[in-house]
């Protein structure tokens, strides 16, 4: 297990991060651009906890899931360097980074601070490797 980084510390390019995919952004067919659109997008560091552990963390009280209104359905995974490459190759290049942002309920929590527009958000969404609960 990697160390928990201080808030604001850059997450290394070789790390992978996870994004919780919930019922508001996935309908069984498509993922919404909202998965990455906007600033300070929450992700979580795979170097700290496994995918299996993340299912439990995301479901903790105060975490991602707020049943019955919002449920965790999938987990997306992307490499930090891959994400930066996608940002750099976009029509309007964006220097995408990931910064550590530990929370009470998840010390692996991190954020993508940049304000990501729709076109780039779609590309990041399409680059996710998807984990299903049945495979955890």
């Amino acid at each position: 297990m990697a160390e928990v980084l201080e808030k604001g510390h850059p997450v290394a390019a070789e790390e992978d991060v996870l994004r919780a995919l919930t019922s508001d952004t996935w309908d069984g067919t498509r993922f919404s651009s909202q998965t990455f659109k906007g600033a300070n997008t929450s992700v979580s560091r795979l170097a700290i906890y496994s995918v299996r552990q993340h299912w439990r963390i995301f479901r903790r009280s105060g975490g991602v899931e707020r049943p019955p209104k919002r449920t965790l359905l999938k987990i997306g995974q992307i490499n930090v360097a891959r994400m930066a490459d996608i940002g750099a190759a976009h029509d309007v290049p964006v220097d995408l980074t990931v910064e550590s942002d530990p929370l009470d309920w998840n010390d692996a929590h991190a954020i993508i601070p940049q304000d990501i527009k729709r076109g780039l958000a779609n590309k990041l969404r399409d680059a996710l490797d998807i984990h299903s609960e049945s495979a955890r």
Partner: peptide, 14 residues
């Protein structure tokens, strides 16, 4: 088409 909900309280169709 799919429908999604946004943090602003809006709706997105795709």
């Amino acid at each position: 088409p799919s429908v999604f909900f946004t943090k602003e309280g809006g709706f997105e169709l795709e």
